[in-house]
Each structure stands twice: as structure tokens, then as C-alpha cells.
């Protein structure tokens, strides 16, 4: 017991360090590469009149933080989602929030003429929230025994498909929307400004602890509904609460950075062999690993093609696809 606990703490500490180091390294890269010493100076002795310091503070730091928080939120949501649905291949995207966010985005482009990434954040959030509410209602969240995970996923698939269909309908009507949407839908942390981040931080500050609480609440459910009920768990409430936490985490991330695939799906699988079956540890580990992976994807996107940036969403798909194949090939079977 003792030995296990301390080795788990060490693993979590390594994951944290990795994320922070990568985030620091990410501050060097960009259209104008900055020397380490300048980056360091900008952090410890900030000088507002120095343009290089301003670049670090206004652009690169918010971007690194957005990647850390967004990647972490997706990782944690993935761990919760796989446990909630008892399906190791479940991705939080299955709950339909990405479709809702996409619809919010194209409506705001079409009707309000939004073009900048940061103008899209709140419309996306509204769309994601609407989709999440519909999914919860259709998934049976208000029934006395609570939602049934299979029903939730079906509702998510239906709502997501409906919202994407509406999105495409608008895109067909308006060519200009397509140009902005095409960029948004790749997903990435490039366009994030300090003010977007500041506006979203309080919402993350609520939903990340909710995600952690959901991990604690969901943990006994891995033994099955009957056993959990016999242990005094209010299964229906736990499912509703966890679903709300998952859609909040994903909705916020997709609003901030667009849809980023694979983190929610792959990260929990990377974490479980290191931390075991305890959802509480896996959720924390998935947050840390998701954060590190998102920053890594963001860095690689700036390195692969010199002079150009590839969106983190696209890089993530490049990393995620092969790692999923490796996981399927080499890991022993997981049942949740």
C-alpha cells in the first residue's frame, strides 16, 4: 500500500514536471524564435517596453497556458467519459458538444460576421451548452433512476449529427463562413489572446474541480450499478453530475481552441498502465498528461514545417492516430 502510494505520487510529479518544462520550452518557438535567456527574463523581470517581453506575455504565455488547460481538460474528460460509459473507446466528443460548438461558430460568422478566433469563443460556448443540455435531457438525466450511459451516447451522437448537419447547411449558404470555419475546425491554440483566456479561466476554475469531484464520485461505479448502490452511492445523481462535468470541460475547451481529437481518447490509455485502475488517480494523471501532450503537439506544429505553423489539432491527429494503433496492437485488453 505505502509503496504503491509513493510510486504513484512520483509518477504524478514526473507528469507535472514534464508538462511545465514543455510549456516553458514552447515559449521559445514561434514566428520569431526567442533565446532562452530572453524568455526567462520576460518571466522573472518583465519589462513592458521590450517587444520581445510583450510577445512572451501577450501571445506565447496565454497560448501555452491555453494548451495546458485545454489539453488537461480533454484528458480528464476522456478518463471520466470512458469510466461513465464503461467503454474504453469512448471519447468525450461522443456527447455531441463539438457539433453544438461548430453550429455556434458558423452562426456567429454568418449572422454577426465574426472572423477572429476570439470572437468565436462565446458563440461556441453557447452552442456547446445548448447541445449538452439537449443530450442530458434526451439521455434520461431527469428520469428517477438517472441517465443510462448507452442512451447518453446515442443522444450525443444524434444531437451532434443534427448540429453538424445544420452547420453544413449554413456553410453551403455562405461561402465566407467556410473560410473562417475551415480554420476553426482544425483546432489549435494559435489565435488565443490573453483576454479570451482571462474570460474563460473562471469557468475552467469551476469545471476542473467538478471533474475531479466526478472522478471521486464515479470511482465506486466501476464495480457495477448494483454494487455501487449497495455501497450507498446515488448512482443517478453521480451520472448526471459527471455528465455535466464532462460536457463543461469539453465545451469550454472546444470554445477556446476548436475541436481537438484524440487527447480524450488516447491519454487515459497512456495513463492507466502507470497508475492502475483507480479512477481518481487516472483522472488526475490524464489531466497532467493531456496538458503535456497538447503543449507537445503545439510545439511540434511550429517545428515540422519551418516558417509555417500547423494547428495543434492537426498535429495531435498525426500523433494520436499512430499511438492509437500502437495501443490497440500492444496493450492487453481493458474492460471498464
Amino acid at each position: 500500500m505505502k509503496r504503491n502510494t509513493s510510486s504513484h505520487l512520483a509518477t504524478l510529479a514526473i507528469m507535472t514536471t514534464l508538462g511545465l518544462v514543455l510549456a516553458f520550452v514552447s515559449l521559445w518557438f514561434g514566428v520569431r524564435p526567442l533565446p532562452t535567456s530572453t524568455v526567462w527574463q520576460a518571466l522573472v523581470a518583465f519589462d513592458p517596453s521590450n517587444t520581445e517581453h510583450m510577445i512572451v506575455h501577450e501571445l506565447r504565455l496565454p497560448r501555452a497556458m491555453a494548451a495546458l488547460i485545454g489539453g488537461g481538460a480533454l484528458g480528464m474528460a476522456g478518463a471520466l467519459m470512458q469510466s461513465l460509459s464503461r467503454n474504453p473507446l469512448a471519447d468525450p466528443g461522443l456527447l455531441g458538444v463539438n457539433g453544438g460548438a461548430a453550429l455556434g461558430v458558423v452562426i456567429s460568422i454568418w449572422v454577426l460576421g465574426a472572423t477572429a478566433q476570439s470572437q468565436l469563443v462565446f458563440p461556441a460556448l453557447a452552442g456547446a451548452g445548448l447541445a449538452a443540455t439537449l443530450v442530458l435531457l434526451l439521455g434520461g438525466a431527469v428520469r428517477p433512476r438517472g441517465p443510462d450511459p448507452t442512451r447518453l451516447i446515442l443522444a450525443g451522437a444524434a444531437v451532434g449529427a443534427l448540429f453538424l448537419a445544420l452547420t453544413w447547411a449554413i456553410l453551403i449558404l455562405s461561402r465566407e463562413s467556410l473560410d473562417t470555419y475551415r480554420f476553426w475546425v482544425l483546432g489549435g491554440f494559435t489565435g488565443i489572446t490573453k483576454s479570451d483566456l482571462v474570460a474563460l479561466l473562471p469557468l475552467f476554475a469551476v469545471s476542473l474541480p467538478m471533474g475531479l469531484a466526478a472522478a471521486f464520485l464515479l470511482a465506486p461505479l466501476i464495480l457495477g450499478d448494483d454494487t455501487a448502490r449497495a455501497l450507498g452511492v446515488r448512482v443517478g445523481f453521480v451520472r448526471v453530475f459527471s455528465t455535466v462535468a464532462i460536457v463543461a470541460l469539453c465545451g469550454l475547451t472546444v470554445s477556446m481552441a476548436g475541436p481537438i481529437a484524440f487527447i480524450g481518447l488516447v491519454v487515459p490509455h497512456l495513463v492507466r498502465p502507470l497508475l492502475g485502475a483507480d479512477l481518481r488517480l487516472v483522472a488526475i494523471g490524464s489531466f497532467l498528461t493531456g496538458a503535456a501532450l497538447a503543449v507537445l503537439a503545439d510545439i511540434l506544429g511550429r517545428l515540422i514545417l519551418p516558417g509555417q505553423e500547423i494547428e495543434a489539432g492537426a498535429t495531435m491527429a498525426l500523433i494520436g492516430g499512430p499511438s492509437l494503433i500502437l495501443l490497440v496492437r500492444f496493450r492487453r485488453e481493458v474492460a471498464l
Partner: peptide
């Protein structure tokens, strides 16, 4: 305390 007839546990659990 109740032990169900067909109890399931996830993999990786000790």
C-alpha cells in the same frame, strides 16, 4: 451489505 450474483470489476484492479 449485499453481494450481487454476477459482480463485475474492471481490469487492472487489485
Amino acid at each position: 451489505a449485499f453481494m450481487p450474483q454476477s459482480a463485475t470489476a474492471p481490469t487492472g484492479m487489485r
